[in-house]
Design a protein around this nucleic acid. Sequence first.
RNA 1: GGCCCCAUCGUCUAGUCUGGCCCAGGACACUGGAUUUUCAGUCCAGGAACAGGGGUUCAAAUCCCCUUGGGGUCACCA
Length: 526
Amino acid sequence: MSTVRTRFAPSPTGYMHIGGMRTALFNWLWARHHGGQFVLRIDDTDQQRNVAEALEPILHAFKWLGLDWDEGPEKGGEYGPYFQSERTELYRAAVDRLLAEGKAFKDFDPPEVTQADRAAAEKEKRNFLNIRRSLELSDAEREQYEAEGRPFVVRFLVPRDAGKVSIEDHIRGHVEWDCGLIPDPVIMRGNGMPLYNFATVVDDAEMRITHVIRAEEHLTNTAVQVLLYQALGYDVPEFAHIPFVAAPGTKEKLSKRDKKLEKYRKNPQFQKLFDLADRVFPQIGLGSSETLNPVMVKYYEEIGFLPEAVLNGLARIGWSLDDRTENMSLDFVIENFTLDRVVKSAAGLDPDKLLAFQEYWMGQKSLEEKVEHCLPYLVKAGRIPAEPDEQTRQFVGRLIEALGDRLKLFSDILGYEEYFVADDEMTYDEKAFQKRLRKPEDAAPLLAEFREELAGCDDFSADALDKLLHEWVEKKEIGMGRIIHALRMATTGKPAGPGMFDCLALLGKDRCLARIDRTLALLREG
RNA sequence: GGCCCCAUCGUCUAGUCUGGCCCAGGACACUGGAUUUUCAGUCCAGGAACAGGGGUUCAAAUCCCCUUGGGGUCACCA
C-alpha cells in the first residue's frame, strides 16, 4: 500500500476560517495517523490581491496550532510548485490532452449566450445542459475564429451517455450521479487560467494525493471531478466528505459574511464570544469583534485560548472516539483518529463546549506558562511596562496564583485592573458599593476600626491576615460577613474575586490602607 | 425548482453496518443542593432525545418503504 497523502488547499483570503481549519485538521490527522504526508497547496488562480500577504494569516494559524505541513509554502517538496498560479503549464498541458482526445472543446459562445440558455432552461423548468454549439463548427470555421482571436473557454465534454458516476465515500458510502444531468464545466477561462474543479483534479493527481478529505459542500463537485480523473487517465483518489462546521445552534454552514455575522451575534452562546472580543480587543489595540470575530482562527489566539483547547474542540466537531472520551491531546487524537468515526450530519460549533475544553487545558498549564502568556496582554493594555522587571513578573505570578481557576482565558487577566491602577484611580462597582458599604450602617465604623488593626500589623501574608481578621471578629463577637464584604469593596472595588486575604496580601499594607482611607472619605462625603 | 446529503437530550455525541445487553449512555449547558468570606472551582442530585407513519420480525433507535423537516450545490468563485 502506498503512503497516505492528504492535502488542504486554501485560497489566500487574508484570514483562516475556523471551519476550514477543522477540515485541515482532519486531513492532517489522517496523514499523521498513517505516518503519511500532509500537503499545503495554495489555490490562488483567481487572486487579485497580494498573495503573500493574504496567505500569511493562514500559515500563521497552522503554526499556532502546531499543524505542520510536509510540502507546501516555505517548505517546497518534490511535487511543487505548490501555488496554483505557478502551475499553469501543467493545467495547459492537461487541457491540450483533453482537447486532442476530443474530451473537451473550445466554446466560443459568449457568456451572455450561455446565461440565456441557462435562463431558458430554468424558465421551462428543464434541467440545463450546454447546447454545445461550438461543437457543430466546421474545422474551417473553428480555424477562422481562432485566427480572429475570438475569445473562448474550454469546456469538459461530459460523457452524457456514460450512465452513472459514483464514488464510495469514506463517510457517505455509495453516492452516484447521472451523467446525463451534468452540464459541461468550464475547465479553462478565457484568460487561460484553470478553474477550481479542474486544477484540483490535476493537482491532486500530480501530487499523488491518496485521500481527498474535504467538507460536504464539495460533494456535488465530485461527480465532475471523477469524470475528469477518468478522462485524464488518472487514478481516482479516495474521498471523505466530512460534515461542515455549522453556526452555533444551526445546521447551516458557518459563514464569514457580514449578514450572517449579525445573526450569530444574537445567538446566546456565540454572543459571549463576540462580547468578549468587544471587551478585550479594544484594550490591546486589536479593534473589536468587527475586525476579529469567532469565525476566524486568529480570534481564538488573540482572545487567549490555548491551541490545545481549540484543537480538542475542533477534533470533537463531527468526530468522537467513543461514548466518553472528551479531553484529548493532539497526540492522542493522532493515535486514535479514523475516518469511520466521523459523523455524517452537520455539527455546530459550540462555544460553551470550547470554553469547557479551554478550562480543562488551562488547568494543565503551569504557573510559569500562564504568566508568560498573560504578560503580553498587560503590556499591550498599558498596565505594565513593555519590559516588565522581575518584581512585576513576580507580582503577576502571585496574582495568577491567587486567581486559580478564575483565569480561563489569558485575556481574563485584563479583568483585574484593580491590581495595576493607582489607589486613587481604582473604580468601584456601583451596585456593590451601595450594598456593601453605603447601606450597612456599621460598614464604615467597622472598616475604620479594622483599618487600625491592619495598620498595626507587620506580617501581611495571607495566612497572617486570615488569623488577624478571625481573631478580631471573635473578639468583637461579630460575624465575618459584617466586615469582609466591606473590606473587599474598599480595597478592590469589586464584590467578587480571589480570596480576601490573597487580595490584601497582593496589594500590600500601604495600598490597602490608602484604599481604605479613600473609601472611608468617600463614605463620609455621602 | 433539479440533483445530492442529512435526521438520537438545548448542543456535541455513543449506540445504527453485525436487530435483543438501550423504557437509550457520556460530555457541555441548564436547574437544585452541599462546601466556601465573595466569585470561580469541587462534590452530589435532577430534568432533558430515538422527526412522523407504515411495514419486516418473537423482538427495531437499529433493516425496508413513504412522508415531513433541515442542509448543501447548481459560475469564465474556491
